[in-house]
Each structure stands twice: as C-alpha cells, then as structure tokens.
Simulated scan of single mutants.
Amino acid sequence: MTTAQAPTGFAKQLRYWRTLRRVSQLDLASSADTSQRYLSFLEQGRSHPGRTMVVRLAESLELSLRERNGLLLAAGYAPVFPETDFSTPELAPVREALERILHGHMPYPAICTRANGELLAANSAFDLLTEGAVPGLLGPAMNVYRLALHPDGLAPRVINLPEWGRHITEALRGKALRSPDPTLDALIAELESYLPQANPGPDHLGFAVPLRLRSAAGELRLMSTISSFATATDVTLSEIHLEAFLPADRATAEILRHLAERR
C-alpha cells in the first residue's frame, strides 16, 4: 500500500480532473453535495478539504481507485484503498475463483490480465493464441496486447489485422483519454507501429469486428467479452480484467471443441 506523503498540488489536480471529465464546477459541486463557491475555493487553493470531501469529489469524478488514492495523497491524507500483491495469501480465494472461471470457459480461450495487458492467468485453450510466437513474447510478465499485434506474435495469423488491431488500440486510446498514463501512451504508440494501414470499405462496421484467425484446422472467428470486479475496493482487484473469447460461428465452435478433445 502507498504511504502518505506531504500535500502537493491538490488544487491543481482537482482542476485537472474536472477539466478532463468536462464537468462544470456547478455540476461537480452538486454531485459531491457541496457548494460551487466552496469548490471554487478548493481549486484556487484558498480552502483545504477534509478527507471525506476528497473521497466524495473523487467518486463524483469517477476516478479509478488508484487515482482516488492519488488525490487523497495530494490533499495530505493516507490512501483509503489498499493495493495487495496478486500473489499474496490474502488474494488466494480470488485466484482460485478466477481459475475456476477460466477452466469453466473451456474449450474456448480465456485470460486474466492486469489493466496494462500483463497476463496473470489463462486456460489451456490460450495456446491457440500463442502458437508460433517467439519465446521473447511469451516469458514472464507477458503482455497480451504486444503478443496480439507484434509481427513475431499472433499478428501473422490474423486475417483482418488492420481492423482487429485498431479495435485494440482504439480501446486503449479511450482508456488513455480517461486516465492519462505515459506508460500506456508508449504502449499504444508501439502497438500502432505494428499495424498496416486500414482501408475500410463501404460495408465496414467500425471496430466491433471478430478476430479472424488462421489455424491448421481452418479459419477461426472469435468474439471477446471483458469482465472486471465492479465492486472491488482493492486497487489490484479493480485493475484485473477477465477476457473470454467466444466462437462467432458454428464452424469455429466445432473446431475448438475438437482441439480441446485432443489435448
């Protein structure tokens, strides 16, 4: 867990987040159950908020748990939300639950990742997505976004790489706009450097496209869903995502079922 630090820049951070969220002082004050005048004083540094007020403002601005801790630190308070290492005994029940979910999704691929794409766990069907990738992309702290789009990873097998790749990068860009992070910006730039130019035709459906993947058994068409711990009060849990791939047609479902039977 992050320890408390000397108060620095609360007024600046509050203005920054309110501006980024495109919320007026009046609307934010109303949402946080305070007055516009008091909020104006906070943004000018003329008043100092209590801890409860900081939490209410952070909630009203829909900040992530990590960002809420940062706002508390800027105001001179200890963080409210703990950040537990994923490998600790305290999170053993969570790890076991995720393993059961991953196993239950068989014969379809499913993975558990951190928000930046670092792989935490996967079921045995995930080898469908690692086949042919160079060892350097598969080691410890594997990044599934890099694996997906790197020319030495999954990319050569993706039939619709320009469209599907931009589905990934556009989703990450949306996240970066909401929660700016230089590390995420660098990852997005790297991923975009791997993608060929997309030339959407008149029937282009945007970024809601399946992953069309070459395999020895034929073309696979996969859609994915992403789940998270909506009520998490721990930073680590709040940043964990579970992505489950589903067959987009009957032929893909049959191929995946036969592959699972051979494992």
Rank of each mutant, 00 (worst) to 15 (best):
S87H: 11
E131N: 09
I240N: 05
S227Y: 09
P162W: 03
E261S: 09
L61W: 07
L57R: 06
V158T: 12
R263N: 12
D185E: 11
N69I: 07
W164C: 14
P89S: 13
D85Y: 02
L191I: 01
P140T: 06
A74P: 08
W164A: 13
M106N: 10
P140V: 01
N160H: 12
Y194T: 05
P247W: 06
L259H: 01
T8C: 00
D249E: 12
E170S: 11
A75H: 10
A125N: 02
L119N: 10
V134P: 01
E96N: 02
T252H: 09
A248M: 06
L205C: 10
S224I: 06
S179M: 02
A141I: 06
T225I: 13
L65Y: 01
G70W: 03
P140S: 11
R100N: 10
A251L: 01
F41E: 08
L61A: 09
T52D: 15
A78F: 03
G9K: 06
R18L: 04
Y145D: 00
P200V: 05
L246G: 05
E83W: 07
A110K: 06
E254I: 15
H241G: 11
A4N: 11
L129D: 04
Q197S: 13
R250F: 02
G165N: 10
P89E: 15
A248V: 08
T52R: 14
D152N: 14
P196R: 02
R95W: 09
L191R: 00
A176G: 02
A74W: 00
A6C: 02
A32C: 05
L61Q: 08
L20H: 03
W164T: 12
M223R: 13
E96V: 01
L72Q: 04
L128M: 13
G117R: 08
G165W: 09
S64F: 07
A171I: 03
Q13C: 00
L177G: 14
Y16Q: 10
N143L: 08
A78L: 08
I255A: 07
K175N: 13
T169D: 08
S40P: 04
E261Q: 11
A217P: 00
A121Y: 04
G153T: 10
R18S: 08
L61M: 10
N116G: 06
Y38K: 01
H103P: 00
V80I: 12
R178I: 03
T19P: 01
E43R: 15
M223N: 14
A4H: 11
A198H: 14
S227C: 04
Y38Q: 01
G153Y: 12
S24P: 12
L154T: 12
A122T: 00
N160G: 09
T233I: 15
S60H: 11
S179K: 03
T88G: 03
D33P: 00
R95K: 05
T88V: 05
R173A: 14
H167N: 14
A148N: 10
L72F: 03
L65G: 00
V94A: 15
G153S: 12
F245V: 07
E83C: 04
P140N: 07
P82M: 01
D185I: 02
L91C: 07
R250C: 03
V209F: 09
I101Y: 06
V80T: 13
Q5Y: 01
L65K: 01
H150Y: 02
L14N: 13
